[in-house]
Computed example of a mutant assay.
Amino acid sequence: MHVDNSHHLIAAAQQRHETTRAKATQALRDLDREGGAVTFQIVAQKAEVSRSWLYTQPDICVEIRRLRDLQRGSAGSPLPAPQRATEASLLRRLEVANARARDLTTENQQLRKQLEHALGRARASTAERRPGGAA
């Protein structure tokens, strides 16, 4: 009778799987940190795994697509992760821009009223200088 040593094979396969996942995850982190382009091909090359294996890993596949889409949404070369704006800073910039737009609208309205008054005074003074004093 043979002894069942399959648990050794299972443990080795599990270890190989975890090592491969760690390499792929590290490749993603490095590309994101460095601002490198993120594609399945580039991640596969950097992690020394196959593209087809990457597609079988749902969480890694989602992260590659997320980073790729994030980079496609920005013009020019991708920024490294530490240089990207946070959601909070973007919201703050939006608040500042909205406040500035409100200030400019108020200032524009004040200038229009000043211009109306100035044009009215100029018209009145022109009418007074004409013979007969009528407009």
Rank of each mutant, 00 (worst) to 15 (best):
T126I: 09
R51D: 07
L9C: 05
R129G: 06
A11L: 13
S50G: 15
E63K: 08
I60R: 00
R121T: 05
M1C: 05
L54Q: 04
D32Q: 10
L90H: 05
A135G: 15
N108H: 12
R21C: 15
L94E: 15
E95N: 07
A99Q: 15
A22N: 12
D59P: 01
Q71C: 04
K23F: 02
H2L: 08
D103M: 10
V62D: 15
L104W: 08
Y55V: 03
Q110D: 10
P82D: 12
A12Y: 02
E63L: 07
D69R: 14
A88S: 11
T106W: 04
A101G: 02
D69K: 14
A88T: 09
V43M: 00
R66C: 03
G133N: 14
L111Y: 14
A47M: 01
L28E: 01
H17C: 02
E107S: 14
A135H: 09
Q57D: 05
I60C: 00
R121F: 06
R123Y: 10
L104N: 13
D30P: 00
L28G: 00
D59V: 01
T25C: 02
L91V: 04
A11C: 04
A12H: 06
A13N: 10
K23P: 00
H17M: 03
K23D: 01
Q45V: 03
T25S: 04
L67K: 05
L28M: 08
D4K: 10
Q83D: 11
R84E: 05
N5G: 05
Q110T: 12
S50D: 14
G76E: 11
S89Y: 06
K46V: 07
A124S: 13
L119P: 00
S50A: 15
M1I: 09
I42L: 13
I42N: 06
K113G: 03
I64N: 00
W53M: 02
I64L: 03
L119T: 06
L91E: 07
S125V: 07
T39Q: 03
L79W: 01
L91N: 12
Q26R: 13
A101K: 15
A118L: 11
F40T: 02
D103V: 06
R129M: 14
R16G: 02
Q41R: 11
Q83L: 14
H117W: 09
S77A: 10
V38E: 01
T105K: 07
A99S: 11
R100P: 00
K46S: 08
E128A: 12
E34H: 02
L111P: 02
D4V: 12
L91Y: 08
E87C: 07
R123G: 10
F40H: 03
V43H: 00
L104A: 15
P82F: 04
H2D: 07
R129V: 05
V49G: 00
R93T: 04
R68P: 00
A97N: 07
P82C: 06
A24I: 03
Q57V: 06
Q83H: 09
L67W: 06
R100D: 15
Q41S: 08
R84A: 04
H8L: 15
C61W: 05
E128S: 08
R51Q: 12
A101S: 13
E128Q: 12
V49D: 01
Q26S: 11
M1D: 12
H117Y: 09
G35D: 03
G35F: 02
R112C: 03
Q71T: 04
D59T: 06
N5R: 10
Q26Y: 08
A124N: 08
A118S: 08
A27P: 02
Q15F: 03
E107Q: 15
L94N: 10
T86Y: 07
K23T: 01
